[in-house]
Design a protein around this nucleic acid. Structure first.
Lengths: 225, 225
DNA sequence: GTATTCACTAATGTATGCATTGTCAATATT
DNA sequence: AATATTGACAATGCATACATTAGTGAATAC
């Protein structure tokens, strides 16, 4: 059956989507406070579904519900970024090792190869946004191949939290020339079924990315994002 | 200031606590469905705070809100247990390595030593419940010493999901004679500041615990918990 | 001039009733 | 007999009104 266009999503679900958009677009900046009634008016619904959406997003670590002060869009400190990158490093490296152990065929790795090609194309064109988008797809596909749904969920949520900061840092940092090679090497290790090497390469890759980012933030006195 | 006894928690917060208790005690068994109105009556409040609590607990992975079918207490499959144990292994091992890198003093490790003593006492008395409780404290303290608040949060939630299954498996399994030695070795490595060894020992320890558990579940045909 | 109290206010927390909608079973149709 | 249709129902989704409470600032006591 084709998707039914008349089937309407609940306002609560709409509120979750819309609030996420507003947060990622920066219209609700990190650190800002917003009353439930204000958001309800903005979204054209009553407070009830907005409250429910706020609870959901609180569980996702994007905001904080504070009695009588409205919801606060959570700011991200340098320390937060370090924590998040460390978790991502650990779980993605695990996923890389797991992926290598699954005996994937060349065909299974096609999606991943495509993300690397896209990254190389973007890099040649010095299109940082396109590069970041393809890089995201690479990491998402990597954890998918790892086959642990909880790792996928956790990584997706951490990546959400980092996404806002990325728009700030992406254009400050040097072109990620090393990344593409690292990615290729990880895929090679997975294809070869070498779990230890896949893990090692990816962990090193991630640690390098973290260093670049953290130093960039500290040098530019960006304590909060 | 002493905690104010007159300050009353919101019904929504109470509902979260009570529902967690009901879930962990088994009064709301895994896989069972419950209408919002039923739970509201049971907790002596209206549907509103119960709905909000349900959303919070859904974010914690303990239940699932399904329109018109009530909330379902999530069952845990063998596959789920494998996923959870793998994540715990990875993040706790990372915490062990991080802890070893922090240069903790003997005094800083006192809390952890205490949990090991308690485990040994419990083991000598063959008191499995006391042993499990002390073991929980050991793992909690380990990730605390790791110093990554996100790891703490994730591990706590995964441990929650495992807790229900533990009551089933705890009394089936052989006395964990190896565990206490592993724990001592991890503390030794942390005290010595040997991050690689702390990580390695803990990872091996966790992998062993996982094998014992998964085999136990499979042998007893416990596909769902 | 400063500190304390207290009432007011604004925002959340909660209950309730109605609207909406998927489910289920009874009935009709082939 | 099997399947499709329909309609009542039951449970959630949502809006609204009200209760509660923390924060604010003015008034007062020291």
């Amino acid at each position: 059956m084709a998707p039914n266009p008349t089937k309407s999503k609940s306002n609560s679900a709409i509120a979750v989507e819309e609030l996420r958009k507003l947060i990622f677009s920066g219209e609700l900046p990190a650190g800002s406070d917003h009353l439930e009634s204000e958001l309800a008016t903005r979204l054209g619904m009553s407070r009830t579904p907005v409250r429910e959406a706020a609870l959901t997003l609180e569980g996702q670590g994007l905001l904080e519900v504070r009695a009588r002060k409205g919801v606060r869009i959570l700011p991200i400190s340098v320390r937060d970024m370090e924590e998040i990158y460390d978790v991502l490093t650990e779980l993605e490296s695990m996923a890389a090792a797991d992926a290598a152990g699954q005996g994937y065929s060349v065909k299974d790795l096609k999606t991943m190869e495509k993300t690397i090609e896209d990254m190389e194309t973007a890099l040649a064109a010095e299109d940082r946004d396109a590069w970041a988008e393809a890089d995201d797809r690479f990491h998402t596909e990597l954890v998918r191949l790892g086959g642990n749904s909880r790792v996928m969920a956790i990584v997706a949520r951490m990546a959400d939290q980092v996404r806002r900061a990325k728009s700030v840092t992406l254009h400050m940092r040097p072109l990620p020339l090393q990344s593409n090679k690292d990615h290729r090497d990880v895929v090679d290790a997975i294809r070869a079924g070498d779990a230890a090497r896949a893990r090692e390469i990816h962990a090193t890759h991630r640690a390098g990315a973290k260093d670049v980012l953290i130093n960039l933030l500290k040098q530019n006195r960006l304590h909060m994002l």
